[in-house]
Design a protein around this nucleic acid. Structure first.
Lengths: 226, 226
DNA sequence: AATAATCTTGAACAGTTGTTCAATGGCCGT
DNA sequence: ACGGCCATTGAACAACTGTTCAAGATTATT
């Protein structure tokens, strides 16, 4: 009865499939979908290339699998945040909770390094025209996005549809840049401000966005009618 | 004396170099740096592949050449906007001009289709960790970015460095998403709101951001001291 | 008109891409 | 001990990658 290698638990402790997912996340984040090669991913995972196609069908299948693994947790946190917001009767206080329901679940990714990679993947996917074809956002993010725009319009019953959607997208964009920032903020501030501190990031952004929604000059945005 | 082809002016009217730059801009915007192939670019320009390396040295050289062609115009507009802002003595009114100096030059790209591509290129470059190595932002965008953060801190003399830089990045991010949006906003709003109308986009975003800066709750962001 | 400089062309280069395949390994229930 | 099942492996595939080269065409200079 010899001691067989049996997946070397101390060294890696995961199945090959999980190790592929983990290395793919960091490689996709750094190089993008096209820039990343399945060989680089497989090397980093310590498995032969063919295993990727065996487990995930294709490079695109692996890419999507990462989102299917990570997105639900974020969506659940947002839904939970929105439930809290709905329980707040004072609309002035409620919008604060809605904004935080959008921002915080995403920022809890930054900081802990493995999940920061997923944040970068989201932003890349967002800024890629090809993402329409992949349908990842449509399938996994849009439903909660609609809940959020609904929640915003409930907080500001007299807003036009344009105002609601521009507000949502403004918030979304502000969030994007923090997730994708890699050193530029530190460079511009002479190293005194860093985007790594996600708690600080969330505090600043929420403060600006909440005030922006509450106090913006609607004369410029209300539109002519309806 | 036969009539030689002489570059078929009616058909294209540009030099090969210009036609390469034009087609590269749209191909890079749609497929990203790695997803775009020099062959696709050359086909779209109607020239042989080798011409790209002859005129621009390499694929990366062509990529950079696009930024060197487009960026200065935007930077000049921002500088001009900042000059106007500095002339406004009332700080409350001045911040409005500073925000617009950041936003409007970028949004004048959207709408006219050829330059919308450059907007997408900027966002892709921004969300690419590899951009650090290319140094495009460092060389062409950072100087004006510093002018903008300076202008913000002059409008709010009591703000901390963190507050200034987070404000700038929040604005920057909000801008990003509009430049990169391709149909998602229309989809989420049931086709009633579109990101194509850049004037409307700029109006909404400026309104939110200006109010956000002016009226945010500084108790959450001021920091413990300094 | 002759020469030099610049631009254009198609073919070829070596390297990498994602994917497929047949062969092998280990493990489980029977 | 035996198949049956799933996971793993390395080699091979054709297609595509960015770049180079020598030859040709065009334009500018003398």
């Amino acid at each position: 009865m010899t001691i067989k290698p049996q997946r070397n638990k101390a060294d890696q402790g995961e199945t090959s499939k999980e190790r592929i997912l983990a290395s793919a996340e960091s490689v996709f984040a750094e190089w993008g979908f096209d820039g990343a090669s399945v060989r680089r991913i497989s090397e980093e995972a310590g498995v032969p290339v063919a295993l990727i196609n065996y487990h995930f069908g294709s490079k695109a299948g692996l890419y999507r699998a990462i989102f299917e693994k990570r997105a639900p947790a974020i969506m659940d946190q947002r839904i939970a945040g929105l439930r809290l917001a709905r329980a707040e009767p004072d609309l002035d206080r409620r919008i604060d909770l809605v904004v935080k329901a959008l921002i915080y679940p995403m920022f809890s990714l930054r900081g802990e390094s493995p999940s920061a990679d997923f944040g970068r993947m989201i932003v890349r996917e967002m800024s890629d025209p090809q993402s329409e074809a992949r349908g990842i956002f449509r399938d996994m993010f849009d439903p909660v996005a609609e809940m959020l725009t609904d929640a915003i319009s409930k907080c500001f019953p007299d807003w036009t549809l344009e105002e609601v959607h521009w507000a949502y997208h403004t918030m979304l964009g502000a969030m994007m840049i923090v997730m994708t920032d890699n050193g530029r903020m530190a460079r511009l501030s002479g190293g005194r401000v860093s985007s790594d501190n996600w708690e600080e990031a969330a505090r600043h952004m929420c403060a600006i966005l909440v005030a922006g929604l509450k106090y913006r000059d609607r004369d410029q945005t209300r539109g002519s009618e309806d």
